[in-house]
Design a protein around this nucleic acid. Structure first.
Length: 429
DNA sequence: TCTGGGGTCCTAGGACCC
DNA sequence: TCTGGGGTCCTAGGACCC
């Protein structure tokens, strides 16, 4: 039996945990540059504010109803997520951290010790709330896809008290019939449109599909597995997370600039900063990358025809996690992409092709130099951990401007980093 | 004026190999 | 004119997720 624990309106809930005055009011959290809505309180949803909507389009609504719009505070959310996941890890033999606000638990064999699983789930739910002030819903079912579906039903139907267990054919069928097909995990916009045109409008209808239909219309083997999972046959295993942190297969750092940029030095500053950040994340999970991609984007909402993005990739001669090396190659790729006279709005650096033990290969080429580089990188990470991200940087990051980097955007509505920054600790009193 | 960021998996086609 | 079969690796692109 799988359990899916999902935090309700996670970013808004994190903000409320430290600012109880936000309780009961319409609140939204904004994306980078205060651009789009990425989390909404129930009250904000009730006002008809859609997920992903740009703030400027709903400005009248926000002002009319006094909606609190907050900049995103990822230091806070990451820390709160760690607390929730740490507790969940203690409540089940295996835990998969699926995203910042969701986790799958394996509850195999747990009923024997803890009695009915829905009762156990209610305990977990109230304890998460007591410890962190974060509300959750929990879906329990024999497959991951059904656990997601149970979770969604529990969210929509307050009479269920935040927990739904699908442990019989009758209950499963009951749940399948009340979920629209577009809300099934793995059915996005394209597939939903296709299914509706075929007359399939509910999860129950999808569960009745033949394997051939699923394969033909829903992306081959992916669709076949989806339908099997709805029928109650597990196709997806739990992928336990090592001490709550995920080892990624790719690492990206991408940003829309605070304003459009046309100077090479300005964009280089951004790309070098992104490469540095990506290298830090890479070292934190102990990987070395063999593939480096840089992309540059122009305004995709303008009149210019697509493509709005161009990218360039290089296979590194030696896998590495060395910031200086990665910045050097990123600069070369940027040079290949750069078109003078073009105005860019966004850039990104992506690291791929990981292998373990990259450091060994590095030292093969530079028997003592490799170790020296490793020590330097460790020191760099330690300093940045102590004094804050970006305290110590390679020169290219600084670009032509000694002051604020021109690619950095606005975060005018950010709340303090209550839990992670010495200067912004929560004040009691 | 203002439109996020970071991931996953799968498929198809070409190059290349024996 | 005839001119195999099977495998791997790489890349691009599509669809989905939170």
């Amino acid at each position: 039996m799988f359990a899916l624990v999902d935090c309700n309106n996670f970013y808004v809930s994190c903000e409320r945990a430290f600012q109880p005055s936000l309780e009961g009011k319409p609140v939204v959290v904004l994306s980078n540059n205060d651009g789009c809505i990425v989390s909404r309180s129930a009250e904000a949803k009730a006002l008809g504010i859609p997920m992903g909507e740009p703030l400027f389009k709903i400005r009248p609504l926000v002002e009319q109803h006094g909606v609190q719009a907050l900049s995103s505070n990822y230091a806070l959310y990451g820390d709160m997520s760690g607390r929730v996941m740490g507790y969940l890890a203690s409540m089940a033999p295996e835990l998969e951290v699926y995203s910042i606000d969701e986790a799958f638990l394996s509850l195999h064999g747990m009923a024997r010790w803890h009695g009915p699983l829905d009762t156990y789930a209610r305990q977990i739910r109230s304890e998460v709330r007591r410890r962190t002030h974060i509300p959750t819903c929990i879906g329990l079912a024999p497959t991951k896809t059904l656990a997601k579906l149970a979770n969604r039903v529990a969210k929509k139907d307050p009479s269920l008290g935040g927990v739904l267990l699908l442990d019989s054919n009758e209950r499963r069928q009951w749940a399948l019939e009340r979920v629209p097909v577009e809300d099934v995990w793995g059915i996005g916009r394209q597939y939903a449109t296709k299914l509706h045109s075929m007359g399939i409008t509910t999860a129950a209808g999808l569960a009745r599909c033949s394997e051939a239909i699923a394969r033909k219309h829903l992306g081959g083997v992916v669709g076949a597995r989806l339908v099997r999972e709805l029928q109650g046959y597990p196709c997806h295993q739990l992928n336990p997370s090592e001490d709550g942190s995920l080892a990624r297969q790719s690492i990206a750092c991408t940003r829309t600039f605070g304003r459009p940029l046309a100077q090479f030095e300005d964009v280089l500053g951004a790309v070098a900063a992104f490469a540095s950040r990506a290298a830090e994340k890479l070292r934190r999970q102990g990987s070395a990358a063999s593939l480096l991609t840089v992309f540059l984007s122009q305004n995709r909402f303008g009149n210019a025809p697509p493509p709005h993005t161009r990218s360039a990739q290089v296979t590194l001669p030696v896998s590495t996690s060395n910031t200086t090396e990665l910045v050097r190659f990123a600069r070369a790729l940027l040079g290949r992409l750069w078109q003078p006279g073009t105005v860019y709005t966004k850039a990104g650096v992506i690291l791929d092709g990981f292998e373990q033990g990259g450091q060994e290969q590095l030292s093969l080429f530079a028997p003592d130099g490799g170790e020296r580089v490793e020590r330097l990188m460790r020191k760099l990470d330690a300093l940045n951990a102590r004094y804050g991200i970006g305290s110590v940087q390679v020169a290219a990051v600084l670009g032509a401007h000694p002051g604020k980097a021109p690619w950095k955007g606005q975060q005018q509505r950010r709340t303090p980093a209550y839990t992670t920054c010495w200067d912004e600790l929560w004040q009691v009193g």
